[in-house]
Amino acid sequence: MTLQARYARDRLVEISIILLTLLVVVPLLIIIVYVIMNGFSALNLSFFTEELGSPARAMQGRPAGLMHSIIGTIVIDLVALMMAVPFGIATGIMMSEYHEHPFSPVARLMTSTLNGMPAVLMGLLAYALVVKNTGGFSALAGSVALAFVMVPIIARTTESVLRITPWSLREAGLALGLPRWKVTMSLVLPAARAGVITGILIAFARAAGEAAPLLLTSFGNNYFSIDLTSPMDTLPQRLYSLAISPYRQWHSMGWGGAIILLLFVMITFYVGRVVIRKLEKYTNS
């Protein structure tokens, strides 16, 4: 092959990679621009300081907002995260570090099943477990449903990052006379922390966008509530109900809410990136 032909081929591959990347990035940009165009006008001060109230409120032009949904999302997602992280990491450790343990294949089967399950089923699961037994919709039930979404994601990423930490690290710890659990907790897990945190962020972002599991659990609330035992509002579920409502003012608030949800996810990843970079700087400096 001539040199020129090789250059041409190089160029061809490069161009197709760029085109394929654009194919992914362009729709994303379109979504973002579209959401911002539609929702920006709804973002005024009362959007962040007021609760939604009845439809009449928005129709009559009285101040209404999604403050209660924003706070509800943060509360429900954080509670879910607190429940999911220990289980997710523990399951990941079980699958990676104790793969000879009889429970390990069971854990693997369970996480892959949960992973493939539609999110609405997580809602049903939490409905059966929590709502049925406590006698009503509650924020807590919503957190449980979202925790079901998060656990398999955290477990699988934890497992895979633990597996790629070098075996020699474990041996070095064992050779010092560290017991196995200590090697896992104080050497292997910290060495894999950037990956584990990434997994937690992905799980968090994924759960933050889910509406389906929340419809049957935290249910939604037009008014501000911080009580975990009663219904609470969340952005994804609120977007859904605003979108299917017959009121024009509510539609535009829905677009505004979508901007906030996008920002929420983006900020999550940004903060995560910064944290991870800090951690990696320490290890490599």
Partner: peptide, 21 residues
Amino acid sequence: PVVVRRRVGMVFQKPTPFPTK
């Protein structure tokens, strides 16, 4: 084995510092 390894220490062929510590 943990007790054995506390009495019988080891230095490996390849350096294996604890990278995060």
